[in-house]
Amino acid sequence: MARRQRPNVPVVIDGHEVMAYPDESVLSAADREGIRIPRLCALEGTSVHGGCRLCVVEVAERHKLMPACGTTVVEDMEVRTRSRSLDEHRKLICELLLAEGNHVCAVCVSNGACELQDLAEELGVDHVRPDYQFPRRSVDASHPKYTFDPNRCVLCTRCVRTCAEVEGAHVWDLAGRASGSHLIADLGQEWGEAPSCTWCGKCVAVCPTGALAWKGKAVGEMRHDPSLVAFLSSAREQGEWVDREALR
């Protein structure tokens, strides 16, 4: 993101003194310092969602765990990103995500380039303790260019936020609640029938799993590029697409 001033808010993350920008999130400050906090729904360039809960951290003098993505730095804030119980929570949350959908890596377009798969490895999830839910969900292949496979959706809403906030189309949103929560295009019609879709493909670029993919990709062939959105929104903030000469 474009920054006019230097970071001037001192915070302590895992014992490291870090200078953060005012209004910066703990997650972003930690990233700049090279301190890795696991996350799934956070997506630079879009609004904070705070739903996956993988990035929860311990903040001194707060009695509750705070999501690093949605917690703004405060001077001299002390943050711990790793502890035995945080590790346990993150591992179990990852297991819950795997148990909730039908994540069959062996037959997935994103096998090998999937953020959920990476998280499982990072968090040491070598098996899933809770029962697999085996939900019955059907694939939407109605769009000429892309497919949506809800079996692989983790409800991170990256696509929802990107489409609404960056592309400005708001094709995607959520319907239902609890375990019935699901992604819908427009008013619940097939994606190919959703008139507001501009075919821009940003939702596909930001999907962390194989839920949104290009048509024609076989197992392990899909590559996403979530950094696209950060690029687009910072370019917009910096006025990259404005003809500055003409403005003068």
Binding site: L98, N102, H103, V104, C105, A106, V107, H127, V128, Y132, F134, P135, R136, N151
Partner: peptide, 10 residues
């Protein structure tokens, strides 16, 4: 995980 064998559960 059940994997491909468990696809029949769907």
């Amino acid at each position: 995980t059940g994997n491909v064998t468990a696809l029949r559960n769907l």
